[in-house]
Write a protein that binds this DNA or RNA. Sequence first.
DNA 1: AAAACTGACAACCGCAGGACG
DNA 2: ACGTCCTGCGGTTGTCAGTTT
Length: 423
Amino acid sequence: MGRHSCCYKQKLRKGLWSPEEDEKLLSHITKHGHGCWSSVPKQAGLERCGKSCRLRWINYLRPDLKRGTFSQQEENLIIELHAMLGNRWSQIAAQLPGRTDNEIKNLWNSSLKKKLRQKGIDLITHKPLSEVENVENKIREQKKVAEELSNELNLMNSESSKSDGASSIATKAYAIEIEGYSSSKIMMTNCSSKDFFLDKFMSSNHENYTNTCQPLDLMGNYPFHMGYASSYVNHSRDNEVGDVRLTSQHSQSGKLDINSEFTSNSINVMSIIPPTTTTSFIPTSFPYKPSLHVPSDDISISTPSFAAAGSYYWEASTSNNSKSSIKTNGSKELTSNNTFMESQVEEAKWYEYFHSPMLMLPSVQNQSSESLCGEIKPATHLVPDTLGAMLPHSTKQQQQPSQNINIFSKDMHKLTSAFGHIE
DNA sequence: AAAACTGACAACCGCAGGACG
DNA sequence: ACGTCCTGCGGTTGTCAGTTT
């Protein structure tokens, strides 16, 4: 192992700690507290860097540490917390008094991962591997269809450009959308607090997963990533063609029909109907919000990603245009007024969620269709009864509401400070 | 008995973010 | 506004004891 740069400079000791060193550090901190860690080794008479002293204290010498093997209950709790928080070991450790993040991390890497694998549980999603594979396969199919459609649209564009300039541009715009989606070129434009929260929560929880399986992350278990929105059309088309209304529909043959109409001063809207085939185009031209409404039954999104956590549909809305038109398959088209009202209600719900997130978890609150958690399901919700003896959600979380809230307090703080930026 | 393997634990590294001058 | 220092975090690697071959 290498040596801390500070250790190099000062030729300090590294490696395992001797009992004498432990004794020096322990007695020093017991008497004086640690204060500034960088000054601890000097004051304690140790040839170690402050960083090393701090680590030794936190992971080994601290008096409140619980030594010994992890109980089954602790292991189960770690698994459940990991499903919810991902590799946030410090936050997981905060829920297990006397245990360090390092200890939990080691347990996870050396033991729990293997146990989950043996049980056929995906380590990231905490879902059965077979289910994950199914989703991945269907995502591949979706991407394939998307590429085919993209090619088809390109062809249509090249043909129509000769005769119809307007529809050509519209087709281009849509093709760009497809391209943007299929290549996962996503960027945030204007997002509500809710969007930001979802992104923040999901991306941080599953950052590893996004690296290895971006499509599934986008479309699989955490469709909230769609809160990101590319702005290809906004940026590239506004001046060129004014506002664009695109309406896409899937014909019974499964092919995409695109109707375009252009109005000089009309609303800046794109409504895209979720297809009834396995293809699920999520429009990305505008900032999207995951809707909190319960989709009507006739929204037949057959994609596994959506179905996995209940049915989702997405509002397409403009950030700076008072008018917006939301149209999903079988859903009503909203006017600007009720859109505004509903958005306010949604924001209120999110505000509530930010301030007492755990109270809104499915386990604590009944999974009413009206509840946020009815649709926003933390990965915890997906934790199966691994290892046989999982603690009931509701019991644990009701026992430790304040601790659970503490888990999120750091993120909540960041979020609340970030909201000022976004809204 | 010895080498190879495995698991658990301990420690280090690099980075990010906050505090402070 | 900027640079520096300190702290905390997550990933990675080293160490060692126990087990297997």
